[in-house]
Amino acid sequence: MTTERTPVEQDAFQAWIYARNCLLYENDPGPAELNVGTAQEPHYVPRSLAWQQGYAMNVLVDFDGDHARLLAAAGECQAEADRRAESPYQAQEWSRAADLCTLAAAMVEGAGGHHDDKARQRMVASCRHETTMMALGSIAAVAESSAQELVEQLAAIDSECAADSEGLPEGPAEHPPDDTATSPIDDDVLQEVAAGVFGLQQEPLADRAAIAELTACADQVAWSPDRDLWHELIYRLSGRRLYRRYRTRRTWLPDDAAWTDTPSFNRLTWRTRAAYLPGIFAFAVDYQVCRTCGLGWVEEPYTEAEFQRSGLARVALRVLRSNYPGLSWHTLGGHFREAIAFWKAVGAGVPGGYTQRPPCSHIETG
């Protein structure tokens, strides 16, 4: 006869699932320390702690930052670990689950969320964004969509705070006395969280002024032809039959070109619009147009992590539309659920709206 889990047992079970995955990553081969800071301000912590911090944020989000709920789950996980003492690996899994719950509770305390509901909401929103970035942040559209969602959530929380404060008497906010002194979490754990937890609302790593200059010159594009001169001549003389699929691997571009337009090596007959800071790749998107059908396609916009959430994708797509006016713009494939908001935003008012559409008979996808 199966016994239904109590809410606390269900929370502990969910934490155990995260703990099992966490232990797998902790034990994978790799560097002994991982950078949980930034490239400009690195902060290295032991590999195991880095993964625990990441999975603790998942636990925090799943438990909606509920401090009491996290502590109750931690106690249940530790009790289960004690019950499984004769099975060392299972005991380790449940013990790690208790660690994740305790660490998540420490994060909530560090943000003041155990006595301030608005602080709890901000922490949950920030951690939700951070866990999305850890899992899918390499996908530019997902990163931009998640960042926009975070901004909107924080704005909504702040507006609620402003509304709640109206009509209240002036004076210091009242908090339970001696919160930190009565906290069930040791001070050293709180300090460890404050020192090692991932930055939740960091600016993009690249210099903001440099990014602004890069977006400002997005219409100044260095262009490289699809074919070498003789190949292009034969292509045209043959009525566009010979060397149709040929792509030159030589480019004649200035070394300091900020924006380039080159043949795509991912898709035959397509091109790539890309952006660079001196010596640093920042952004790229594949595109193709068919003037006969009045259609254009873009695929896989990608922004390097340090340039994400800076508007490079948006300005690149806008300039592409101005370079090829009068077209209806689409993508080839479906969009990730997390990217729908991004495509909806950049497609607002754009003919075609970057909706999914198969290629016409005049182009190849490669």
Rank of each mutant, 00 (worst) to 15 (best):
L317K: 04
A97L: 03
Q191E: 11
Y235C: 04
H335P: 05
R240T: 02
S224E: 00
R314T: 04
I340C: 11
S146L: 01
G334E: 15
L70W: 02
G311C: 05
K118F: 13
E33Y: 11
P359W: 04
A32V: 01
A341P: 10
L154M: 08
G167I: 02
A79Q: 14
P176K: 11
P225I: 02
Q148F: 11
A72F: 06
L200R: 01
D66M: 07
S224F: 02
S310G: 11
V189I: 01
A155H: 07
R337K: 14
A258M: 09
G110S: 14
L332C: 12
Y246T: 02
R321F: 02
E213H: 12
N266T: 15
G199S: 13
G294T: 01
I340M: 12
G75Q: 07
L60T: 01
A339D: 08
D116F: 11
R245E: 14
A156W: 03
A105S: 08
A212H: 14
E170D: 04
L168S: 12
G326R: 13
P177T: 10
I340A: 13
L150F: 05
L277Y: 06
H43I: 11
P176N: 04
R291C: 10
Q288L: 06
G294K: 02
D286P: 01
F13A: 08
C101N: 08
A74S: 14
